[in-house]
Design a protein around this nucleic acid. Structure first.
Lengths: 137, 137
DNA sequence: TATTAATTGAGACTGAGTCTCAATTATATA
DNA sequence: TATATAATTGAGACTCAGTCTCAATTAATA
């Protein structure tokens, strides 16, 4: 079973709620999703996982490196499968909500340089550019 | 009166609640503050400004360019006087909560380059590096 | 299979922020 | 200065994401 081995791979104990959550997340493919969307997906599929457990599981998955949280400044977090792509940053269109991903090694390097200069030890960073995508102009 | 002229300067209609809010904000000096902190400051000073009005005023001030919101990913926004310093980004220490500001023109330029490549029209951006400051290691 | 430790569900709770709408107040004009 | 009009306010109910508690359940392990 694919989902079971996915959990062992990340040393996460296998429980029914967690497997159901993984399965819903699988349906999102590459789309970013919120915990509330996962909950809706569970309800649609008749899975009775509590709100508390969904939040707990998704936090755990993020801790363990299976998911990656994305903060678009919307007042709640989105998530994505961490393994599907490596770290990247986001352009976020205020008008249509589109998320454009980008990766820029030179920016990352300059960030490291800033940290060295300030003797700051980075754990993670968020770079989000908000504006209008080409379709929305 | 300094606060009154500050409001006219930004074409903001002068009302008692807004003047009281400006006065509380003045007391924070260069410190970043949340709306709830402003509310506390108002209560301490016996000013009876409603929660709704405080949020409305501070949003308006941000629109008009008097304040600048800062999103440290804490689940609520902080603000700072926009005029006191120009745009900058933040290092945020998870352990002690310290905020270290930095400005890096090369990073800004690379961001613009990314936007041009994606035909994206930036309105604002947030770059936040989270980690441990030198004191907290 | 029994033991032990981790996990779960229900729902109350929190905290930031928004909304409504009648009452108040600021500004523009006469 | 008085008045008309438009903007602003306050009270508190509400929303929404997320957390907490704790008894009951379930997973891993021996």
């Amino acid at each position: 079973m694919k989902n079971k081995s996915l959990l062992s791979q990340y040393s996460i104990r296998k429980t029914r709620p967690r497997l159901q959550i993984i399965s819903v997340i699988g349906k999102f493919k590459n789309r970013h999703f919120s915990v509330e969307e996962v909950l809706k997906g569970l309800r649609r599929g008749k899975s009775k996982v509590s709100r508390a457990s969904a939040y707990r599981a998704i936090n755990l998955f993020s801790q363990k490196g299976l998911l990656r949280p994305i903060d678009l400044g919307k007042g709640f977090l989105l998530y994505e499968r961490a393994s599907q792509k490596s770290h990247h940053d986001h352009l976020y269109c205020i008008n249509c909500g589109k998320i454009i991903e980008f990766k820029d090694q030179s920016i990352e390097k300059l960030q490291m340089k800033v940290c060295r200069k300030k003797r700051f030890h980075p754990k993670s960073h968020t770079l989000r550019i908000t504006g209008l995508c080409k379709e929305c102009l």
